[in-house]
Design a protein around this nucleic acid. Structure first.
Length: 150
DNA sequence: GCCAACGTTGGC
DNA sequence: GCCAACGTTGGC
């Protein structure tokens, strides 16, 4: 079992939205590295730290789980979608997604500023300067430590 | 809204 | 295959 962190803008899709929807196809990832993590690393049952970005208090807001491993993201073939990619071949789709299932909302948001204060989390990809990945791996010790802050 | 950091694009 | 220009991300 592996552990991950996935970013979302809560104005677009928050942990409360996921709670309502129970499970959600994670459309719109258009970064090769993030795609590769989903394709090569993510398996059903893996843990996901649900991270809110571009908001008042960026941070980990909940826990989710990979419900369905990587498959083609249909929005890449939809000309009306913001995620449309005219260059993606039907027979070899360029972009993949996973389904993410709600587990729980944290009692409080564990803020990015707080994560930065702990030496134990120095190695987190999330905290690397300039990091822009929306899907990234988290180690088991990082996972335990972050949730231990709750 | 600013801007630093980074990925992608496209001319050569 | 280099690299400048451009677009996007995301914290602040």
């Amino acid at each position: 079992m592996n552990y991950w962190l996935m970013k979302t803008e809560p104005d677009e899709f928050s942990i409360d939205d996921l709670k309502r929807r129970k499970s959600e196809p994670w459309t719109g990832v258009r970064n090769y590295q993030a795609r590769n993590y989903m394709r090569d690393g993510m398996r059903r049952g893996d843990g996901v730290l649900f991270y809110h970005s571009s908001c008042a208090v960026p941070g980990v807001a909940g826990v989710a789980e990979v419900a369905v491993s990587a498959y083609a993201d249909p929005t890449q073939f939809d000309p009306k979608s913001a995620y449309f990619d005219a260059g993606s071949p039907r027979e070899a789709p360029r972009w993949l997604m996973v389904d993410v299932k709600y587990k729980r909302k944290l009692k409080r948001v564990i803020a990015l500023t707080e994560l930065k204060q702990h030496d134990e989390l120095n190695g987190m990809i999330l905290l690397r300067p300039g990091n822009r990945l929306s899907v990234m791996p988290v180690t088991k010790p990082e996972w335990d430590f972050v949730l231990g802050l709750e």
